[in-house]
């Protein structure tokens, strides 16, 4: 779709990804289930990816898309380790509520 870049101003993509990022922040602040918090972090990573892809498309430079590729790689590794941690936490305290995990809080 070559006419996308001509007909849609880039501000709209900026607004959309800012809004998605804020939704992710709200989710992290609002929910207590650790799995949902991990999912909201994924949402934030996605909004940043969308922003990078839009800049890369509007500048005509593919470096941004390579960065998005690496962000995806890191996100996949992060989710695998995070979910494994959650599993072992659940095995110990039988809950994914983050308010139970306050041993490191002072």
């Amino acid at each position: 779709m070559e006419n996308t870049i001509q007909t849609i101003p880039q501000n709209w993509y900026l607004l959309l990804s800012a809004f998605l990022f804020c939704i992710g922040v709200m989710g992290v602040l609002m929910r207590r289930n650790a799995i949902i918090i991990l999912m909201c972090i994924e949402l934030m990573l996605n909004s940043v990816n969308l922003l990078l892809v839009s800049f890369s498309a509007y500048k005509g430079n593919s470096d941004g898309q390579v960065f998005v590729f690496f962000i995806m790689v890191v996100a996949a590794a992060e989710v695998a380790v995070g979910l494994a941690l959650l599993m072992s936490i659940y095995r110990n305290v039988a809950s994914t509520d983050i308010n139970v995990l306050n041993k490191l809080k002072w």
């Binding site: 959309l16 990816n49 898309q65």
Partner: peptide, 13 residues
């Protein structure tokens, strides 16, 4: 979001 990527000419991504 994948639909947005296709709109932005990022088919591989």
């Amino acid at each position: 979001v994948a639909g947005h990527y296709i709109m932005l000419n990022a088919q591989f991504l």
